[in-house]
């Protein structure tokens, strides 16, 4: 169907900047109610989907992948060579993580990930993206001023370190393998996973420094 036909409806829906927020809530409720009435959706199934993404999927998954790569050189090699398969070894696969590429930070290269077009993000390993990741300020600037963005996030990257920005898309999603922090030789895989932050796997943060270690 040509788009001319429905643009008027769009205007109708979105022209009112100052509409009360409840209008959106009412619209969602109306659509859910109509679809339920027609037998097209089951509200309880929707509850389950929401619960799954709120409690079972999240950056702790990605942190386990990173910690394993830090402690198991053979796994790290597999992860960098075939990220999707290596991540699936730990049981993380599926929607919005069908094709994964893990990029490794080194003393010479710092990687960061953006989706300039929208919000593409590896759900199975990192969960749902934060609002800033989906927002125009991050998406626009990450590719034109990555060092400025990193500075804003408090990430120090020396001028001699190359910064690589990866633009995730509908088919392919990137995740950063951050550098293992110094002074963590005594930690096991589980303890290391605790140091891995969501932002460090997007490339806009560093892993935590273990408590008690020298700054």
């Amino acid at each position: 169907m040509p788009h001319d036909g429905h643009d008027h409806d769009d205007d109708h829906d979105h022209d009112h900047h100052n509409r009360p927020p409840s209008d959106t809530a009412l619209r969602v409720k109306a659509i859910e109610s109509l679809l339920t009435e027609k037998g097209l959706i089951v509200p309880e199934a929707l509850d389950l989907i929401v619960q799954t993404y709120e409690s079972k999927v999240g950056p702790r998954n990605g942190a386990k992948v990173v910690a394993k790569a830090w402690t198991d050189p053979a796994y790290r090699k597999r992860l960098l060579e075939n990220s999707t398969a290596a991540i699936a070894e730990l049981g993380y696969s599926g929607v919005q993580g069908e094709d994964m590429v893990v990029v490794e930070n080194t003393p010479k290269v710092h990687n960061m990930v953006v989706c300039t077009l929208c919000s593409c993000y590896p759900w199975p390993t990192l969960g749902l993206p934060p609002v800033w990741y989906k927002s125009a300020p991050y998406r626009s600037r990450a590719v034109i001023d990555p060092r400025g963005v990193l500075e804003e996030f408090g990430v120090e990257v020396s001028a001699s370190t190359e910064v690589r920005v990866w633009d995730s898309n509908a088919e392919l999603r990137y995740m950063v393998l951050p550098m293992r922090p110094a002074g963590t030789e005594h930690l096991n895989e589980e303890q290391l996973a605790e140091l891995v932050t969501r932002d460090s796997m997007i490339g806009v943060g560093q892993p935590r420094v273990p408590i008690g270690s020298a700054p």
Binding site: V28, E32, L40, I41, L46, I49, Y53
Partner: peptide, 9 residues
């Protein structure tokens, strides 16, 4: 609800 509806539809 929008998130859930998205999957349902």
């Amino acid at each position: 609800r929008v998130f859930g509806l998205f999957f349902g539809c």
